Computed example of a mutant assay.
Amino acid sequence: MAQFRQISIKIADDDAHAVFVEGQAGKGHIVMISAKGKPTTSMLKHSDARYFDLADENTIEKIKVQDAYRINNIKYADIENDVVEQG
């Protein structure tokens, strides 16, 4: 069963709402909201302002939710520090 974790990222230097959906082998995808249109790899940053180190397999595609996008094949270890702990 997939696990969902709220994360904090930046899109074009603005804080963005996102969720990491963990799949198999520690990989999954990020679902994010971008009111600025489809984000590009140069617009995406971790919560500490480091750029995402994305490979060709990390495609960004539009999903059928208004202003929502997802990054595919992300390793959980790469976004672990962005996870927002629920209190």
Rank of each mutant, 00 (worst) to 15 (best):
E57A: 15
V21L: 00
D82F: 00
S47T: 13
N73S: 10
Q3W: 07
M43Q: 15
N81V: 05
A2S: 11
R5Y: 15
E57V: 14
M32Y: 01
I7Q: 01
Y76G: 07
P39G: 02
M1K: 10
V31T: 11
Y51Q: 11
Q24V: 15
H17L: 12
A18H: 02
A2T: 12
V19E: 08
E57L: 12
K62W: 00
M32K: 03
D53F: 07
I30F: 01
S8L: 11
K10L: 14
H46Y: 02
A12R: 13
K38T: 06
A12C: 09
K10I: 11
A55S: 11
T40I: 13
I7F: 00
T59W: 11
L54P: 03
E80H: 09
D67N: 11
I71P: 02
N81F: 09
D78S: 01
T40N: 15
I11D: 05
G37I: 00
H29Y: 15
D53P: 00
Q3T: 14
G23F: 03
T59E: 13
A25G: 13
S42G: 08
V19S: 05
D67L: 07
S42T: 12
H29S: 11
D53V: 08
H46Q: 05
A35N: 14
D48Y: 05
I33E: 13
F20M: 04
I79G: 08
G37T: 00
R50Q: 13
M43E: 13
A18L: 04
V65H: 07
S34Y: 03
G37R: 03
A55K: 13
E80I: 13
K75P: 06
A16L: 05
Y76Q: 09
I71T: 06
S8M: 08
G87Y: 06
I11E: 03
R5M: 12
K64G: 14
D48W: 06
N73C: 08
N58Q: 09
T41E: 14
G37D: 01
S34M: 02
A55Q: 13
L44S: 08
A2F: 10
D15H: 11
K10D: 08
V84I: 11
A2G: 04
I63N: 05
V21T: 09
K10C: 11
G28V: 04
I71N: 02
G26E: 05
A68M: 12
H17T: 14
Q6L: 09
I71S: 08
K75G: 09
A77I: 04
N58A: 06
I74A: 04
Q66N: 10
D14S: 15
H17E: 15
V65Q: 12
A49I: 12
E85T: 07
F4K: 15
D67E: 08
M43W: 07
I71R: 07
D48C: 06
A77P: 00
D82R: 03
A18I: 02
Q3H: 10
E80T: 10
I79R: 08
K64Q: 14
I30S: 04
S42K: 12
V84C: 00
A68G: 07
P39Y: 04
G26L: 04
T59I: 13
V19C: 05
E61V: 10
Q24F: 14
N73G: 03
E57R: 14
R5N: 10
I30W: 01
I11M: 03
G28Y: 03
M32A: 08
T40W: 10
